[in-house]
Simulated scan of single mutants.
Amino acid sequence: MTISEAVEEGMFHSESPIQELIRMLVRYDLTPNQAKVYLFLSKTGIKTASEISKALKIPRTETYHLLSTLQQQGIIFSVFGKPTKFNAVGLEESLEILLNNEKNRINELELGKDSLIKLWKIIPNYAENKKESQENKFQSLQGRNSILVKLEQMIKESKENILVLGTEKDFKRFYFTEFTELLNKTKSNLRILTDYAENNTHIFEDIPSKKIKKIDDVNREDFCFIIKDDTEVIFFISNNKIKDMLAVWTDSKAFVTTLRSLFSLMWKKSHHVDETDEESILGSKMTYEHRLREIEQEKRILNYLQENFESLGKEK
């Protein structure tokens, strides 16, 4: 079997380990096709651009561009001959190279920060609107990286409390990041509402169980948000038409207060993940009238959220 036949028969099929490797290499600032070319060369050895193009079914012009970029990044190299052939640097060495590239880029950005700030201060303000600074701000965040940057900023700057609501499915996309580590280190009052399975590993497993309560009402699992200090919130939006994660950050007092109220209601009636069933039953006793008022309050909150956030999801 030729390498082209092997590729066609499943080397890059959707459930293969190669696909998982591609997804992971994208985090190292490679595009999916760059990762595909690199992994192909890593497993097949020396190939011409024409052979790579044919095997991976990537247009030849794009293949040459991908090879040129990967050479500049230092993770593939050309082999002297006619036609020119290409091979890949070993995976461990390539990861070190990519990490160093990213570190160097960050260092350059750090060095340029002071100059940017100085230049910005030189430029006069041509118009000032004091009312504008008092208005509620909304920021659309699309893609895991843009959301993660905002989450990390909120957690690091938090002084009072961090409230997290969402399922394992919502947060598993933040594996291999500093998200849970920052939550664990925060000095703020941390409370997490999530689904929980004792027999399975979960993203919050390093966080003390006293800070985690289990979502018992499956109808509330559609909501996912994180509140910082009762002043700002990131609210995740479900939109099946968009592959990337989508969220909205806002410091709107109305939105934050509404979501804070929903969290408080759910926290009050939920139980800690390490509680026994008997403790859970004793802790959740309430009068019928009290529960009825609570349901009515939740209904008003959910209607408000649905009216305001559904339109945001449709616009994206």
Results as ranks from 00 to 15, higher is better:
F171P: 00
K187C: 10
Q139I: 05
W249C: 04
I117G: 07
I212M: 02
E20G: 04
S270F: 10
I46V: 09
G112Q: 08
G313R: 06
E221A: 10
E93Q: 14
I301N: 08
L95P: 03
L148R: 00
T2G: 15
F174N: 02
E221S: 14
I76W: 03
M11K: 09
K268E: 07
S14R: 12
G81R: 10
L302I: 12
E132F: 12
V37L: 06
G313M: 00
H272K: 07
S78W: 00
E15C: 15
G10M: 13
D244Q: 15
L116R: 10
F225C: 00
E51R: 05
Y288R: 07
E275K: 09
S4C: 11
F235S: 05
L66W: 00
S188R: 06
N145Y: 13
A49T: 14
K243F: 14
G10V: 03
N100Y: 02
D222L: 11
R220Y: 09
I76L: 11
Q142D: 05
L25I: 03
Y288G: 13
G143N: 13
Y28R: 11
A197P: 13
E108D: 07
G45E: 10
M266N: 02
Y196N: 05
K150R: 09
K172T: 03
L91F: 12
T69V: 11
N33I: 03
S68F: 01
W267G: 01
N308T: 03
P59L: 08
N33C: 03
F138N: 10
K150E: 06
K214E: 13
E8F: 03
K253H: 10
T44S: 11
E152A: 14
M286Y: 06
G112I: 08
G143F: 05
T63P: 08
E296N: 14
F235T: 00
Q72E: 15
N129Y: 01
F235Y: 00
K159F: 05
S133E: 02
S140H: 12
L67Y: 01
A49N: 04
R220F: 14
Y196I: 06
P208K: 13
T61Y: 11
S68C: 13
T167I: 04
P17Q: 04
E5F: 04
H271M: 10
K243M: 05
R293M: 11
I106T: 08
F309S: 01
Y288K: 05
M245W: 01
H65E: 12
Y28I: 03
E205A: 13
I52G: 07
Q306W: 04
K82Q: 07
S4D: 14
M11I: 15
D230M: 09
M1S: 15
E307D: 11
A247T: 03
S158Y: 09
G74W: 05
W120P: 02
L148T: 02
K299Q: 08
T194I: 06
S158P: 02
I46Q: 14
I147R: 00
S16H: 10
R291C: 14
I147Q: 00
E51F: 10
E178M: 12
E108R: 12
A254F: 05
S188Q: 00
Q72G: 11
F225S: 00
E128Y: 05
I226Q: 04
K54I: 08
E93A: 09
